[in-house]
Simulated assay, not measured.
Amino acid sequence: MTTLSKKSGWYLLLTFFVSMLFYSCNNSNIEESPSQTPSNQRNGLAGAGDYDILTTTDGFTFTLEIDQDNAQDISHLVFQLMTCEGEYVTIDNFVSATVNGMDWDLTSTTGSGTDCTFDTGDFVKFDDFGFQGGVVTVEFTLDVQAASGTVLIKSGQGCYPFDFEGDCGDDEECVYVTESFEIFAGQTILVGELLVTNDEENLYITYSSTSDDQFAETHLYVGTLEGLPTNRRGTPVPGQFPYKTDHDPAVSSYTYTIPLADLPDCYIIAAHAAMTSDETAWSFGDEFEGTRRWGWYSSYCTQVCE
């Protein structure tokens, strides 16, 4: 009986030490196992939505350069835009769309498995991004002008909104009309036309021959009627006109460019020429008063684009 009891005691003691050793090994394995924390938290990406975004637009074409180096990679974008008339832009208003220069398919539904969307109104989704780091360039063109927009950037579990401005500037180009005045040599011979127009900065006056007769000299006055150079008898003196050119060789067309800043809103144009036929020529208009010499001047007002 005594011998059996001693053996049982040693057996129980040995079992206890083996159990403690097994428990210690298991605890060591648990402490050294990889963390189960989500990767964005494990890597310390506290600024997951810190995207640097540059936008440019003329109201029709929008370009967004999205730098995702300091944030999570983008999975998709959802755009909502308002027209200059206060209506939602729809997917039908998109003429083209690219991402990093590649044509991109668009959808007008959120899809399953995401709550990154707008509660009301139309929106357009750029789906299936797979660009890692770097700058993502999104460009799209509309057939209407947009006043403003919001893009939701979906990445990981986050949904980050970004507002941007559009442009409701006048999309119609200003059209400046060209006026034409006939040029007569020797009072009765039609030899060409004087073409007059302007833009926002300059007045353009072009002598243009429509015959075999060419311009050997051109003399031009633009200003008030009272400022027209004349002699004591009131006869215009083309040689004293402020804009003049000797053309050697003779030309069939010549344009003077005059800054509008030097002119009043309305003024006269007296265009004189010496032709290769040795005839004197004037552009047609109102006759000069107080002189027996023939000649004309025309009236013109600067066109303003409003």
Rank of each mutant, 00 (worst) to 15 (best):
Q41C: 06
D246N: 04
T245C: 15
K244P: 09
G130W: 13
L54D: 13
I269R: 12
F162W: 04
Y243G: 07
T255K: 01
S75K: 01
T280L: 07
G130V: 04
F94D: 14
M102L: 11
P264D: 05
T3M: 13
N27Y: 07
D163S: 10
D171E: 13
F79G: 02
V175E: 09
D171I: 05
A274V: 15
T56N: 08
F164T: 15
S35E: 03
I153D: 11
L142N: 03
D170Y: 09
G134M: 02
C174I: 02
D67Y: 14
T210Y: 00
D103H: 13
K7F: 00
D265K: 14
T218D: 04
F162L: 11
R232D: 10
T15I: 12
I53D: 00
E279Q: 08
C168I: 01
T55G: 09
L64Q: 11
V251K: 00
L12F: 05
P229W: 10
T188Y: 02
E32Y: 05
G156T: 02
V304D: 14
G290P: 04
A71R: 05
N231I: 00
F118E: 15
H272F: 08
V89K: 07
P161I: 01
S155C: 10
E200M: 12
P229K: 02
T56Y: 15
D163I: 03
T257V: 12
F129E: 03
